[in-house]
Design a binder for these strands. Sequence first.
DNA 1: CTAAATGCAAAACGTTTGCATATAG
DNA 2: CTATATGCAAACGTTTTGCATTTAG
Lengths: 145, 145
Amino acid sequence: MENRIENIKKQLHSQSYKLTPQREATVRVLLEHEQDHLSAEDVYLLVKEKAPEIGLATVYRTLELLTELKVVDKINFGDGVSRYDLRKEGAEHFHHHLVCVECGSVTEIEEDLLGDVEKVVEKQFEFDVKDHRLTFHGVCKSCQN
Amino acid sequence: MENRIENIKKQLHSQSYKLTPQREATVRVLLEHEQDHLSAEDVYLLVKEKAPEIGLATVYRTLELLTELKVVDKINFGDGVSRYDLRKEGAEHFHHHLVCVECGSVTEIEEDLLGDVEKVVEKQFEFDVKDHRLTFHGVCKSCQN
DNA sequence: CTAAATGCAAAACGTTTGCATATAG
DNA sequence: CTATATGCAAACGTTTTGCATTTAG
């Protein structure tokens, strides 16, 4: 936890960004909700509990910054909001998601299932893959009745 | 072309929807731009050339309807707009995309690369896969210099 | 000290909705 | 004829922006 914050602090400073209390509070919220898929509004409300003076615009600006630094990934499941998902430390690629069309639950898959597929794409389409987004839509275990 | 429209007409009628001139014009635009990834606004402007009286709201309502009928897929590449992509006739699954981070071009991959991956997901996570979304981000052939 | 960041309110944006009118079947 | 669809304008929710003020480094 603390060392991850330290890490992010270094990343910020290396590009002459500052680690403000608001940014730190935002990062802490993200770390504490690592498996969730929070919207900007969600993050705002959670940060507000600890740092009540923060403004929604600052949260948006911070999330944008963290996306740029690849600390988080900005994702979109088709409802009208962007969601923000912390990257696992050192993860090269974005993880995958299973979205249940019945209950709306979102499950994360950490393991990279796309190694072979990426090779095909690189060869066949001469496309230099940098990252991917993979989401499955279907029915989750507990909704299968 | 004409038979695809006829087909869609039948699908509409089977659920007591009507094939209005506005809907037909919208479908024709989608058919004429099969490889593009048009936003609602894009579609609106193109339809307007042929049917100038159409309203943007009608385009939105038509695209929503076609999404429900699985004639098109609504996709989101992370810019703020939804895009609409015609399904290949009889396609069970949504096709994949290669998005170039340099020039923004979008290439479609028709062949299904995820057969094996889906089997893993079904077994390992007991998740009943209905559809998927797969997008690769990287550098396309012509930007690799 | 000064460049960078903040909070606020206003604006912008894509999308949806209410409603009176028109029309496909 | 009637349920369904339309066009328009207003409303909506999310995200961005301008600006005067504050602050981390």
